Computed example of a mutant assay.
Amino acid sequence: MTLLSQQVSGFIENSSWIRKMFESGIALKKQYGADAVCDFSLGNPDVPAPALVGDILRDLADKCEEPFTFGYMPNGGFPWARQIIADLVKKEQGVEVSGDDCLISCGAAGAMNAFFRAVMEPGDEVVGVAPYFVEYGFYTSNHQVTFKPAKSKPDTFELDIDSIEAAMTPKTRGVIINSPNNPTGAVYTKEEITSLAALLDAKSREYGRPIFLISDEPYRFLAFDGVEVPSVLPLYDYAVVLSSFSKNLSLAGERVGYVCLSPRMPERGKLMAGLMLTNRILGFVNPPVIGQHLLKAALTAQVDAGIYAKRRDVMARVLTEAGYDFLMPKGAFYFFPKAPGGDDVAFCQRLMEEKVLAVPGTGFGGPGYFRLTFCVGEEVIERAAEGFRKANR
């Protein structure tokens, strides 16, 4: 087997369980019809984007003949768009940041890859909290960096500071947190993040170089029951916030996100210059022009979070009546119940036989659980009730 075919085979073997189940769903829908399949596999928002999105698209259409409307711009995005992000981060994080501290990217994934390319060296390590978004491991491997999972606390999915410390070595260059969390729905408290910041500060001094706290926050807007999503930037000098507008504006396909550096970070100007370069040389070139104009209009609105709250309640009822053990999600749009019998892969196969699609927790570093997204209509959740009951017999 050639080196190329070995590498391709490795990627396929380790490819996302999310996509595997999504593609299985396509086959099931072709066989039985779309209305017969209840697909909870992919976190693809179905709530319409704010009406202002349509208004700005019509306005841009009228300007398409003007020179440079859709041309290249500075690597980090339009200066006015970077300032819009700075204003947003200031409001959300409670810190003074400028447009110079922010960079527009091709989604949060683009931001994370640009950041890794700018600060990581081959052989470095990044610690992530399990269960975690599965593609973190692929993003680090893009840059010859090792992703090391650290378990969260059993059943509650709270940060386990001892577990994170045990995963750290002198090669550790960053720790990723995702709150509200995909796949568990956990929201880390200010006390948890403060404890983590203290650990990273101590380890940075011990290892003789800074360890970055990378906060991935695309679900910040979606917390339930009055739960607060704490600000990270005020708590640690080497904190970095990454996010996108895939969820809060239902613009997943537009691929626009950002990275913002803590204003307390030493030499952050030098790091931002590096991000400007890597944002281009990785092939992203520039963040989408249309996406930046959409932000200008749509950030004054967002999707109706109340729709997701209602769906969460419906799914909680359906799962409870079907006899599942789960923790009520505090944020994001996922449930992460325990898999009856303990084998999450086998159980998701049982669900599939009932035409219900879920993703095994194994794909997120959380074996023994399975993930359900509730960015689907309430009627789909209700229709899946009988399938959930049959699979759990």
Results as ranks from 00 to 15, higher is better:
Arg220Leu: 09
Lys247Pro: 00
Val119Ile: 15
Ala111Arg: 06
Arg19Phe: 13
Leu235His: 01
Phe70Met: 06
Asp343Met: 03
Gly366Lys: 04
Ile381Asp: 05
Asn286Pro: 05
Cys106Tyr: 07
Asp155His: 13
Ile18Ser: 03
Gly110Met: 05
Gly342Val: 03
Asp39Gly: 05
Ala332Ser: 15
Phe68Glu: 12
Tyr238Pro: 01
Met73Ser: 11
Phe374Lys: 09
Ala36Thr: 01
Lys151Trp: 07
Asp35Ile: 00
Leu213Gln: 12
Arg173His: 09
Val227Leu: 00
Val240Thr: 05
Gly257His: 06
Leu233Arg: 13
Tyr32Arg: 07
Thr184His: 02
Asn392Phe: 10
Leu42Ala: 10
Leu282Ala: 11
Gly269Cys: 02
Tyr32Lys: 09
Ala130Asp: 04
Leu277Asp: 13
Leu200Asp: 06
Phe78Leu: 15
Glu353Phe: 03
Ala86Leu: 11
Leu251Ala: 13
Ala391His: 07
Leu319Ile: 08
Pro74Thr: 06
Ser15Tyr: 10
Cys64Gln: 14
Arg117Ser: 13
Gly257Pro: 03
Leu294Tyr: 02
Asp62Arg: 13
Val359Phe: 05
Thr300Gly: 11
Val97Tyr: 14
Phe138Gln: 12
Ala166Arg: 08
Ile85Gly: 10
Ser9Cys: 09
Ala166Asn: 08
Asn178Met: 06
Ser98Lys: 14
Val187Gly: 00
Arg209Leu: 02
Ile84Leu: 15
Leu249Met: 11
Met328Ile: 15
Thr156Val: 13
Gln31Met: 09
Glu267Gly: 08
Gly226Gln: 01
Glu386Ile: 07
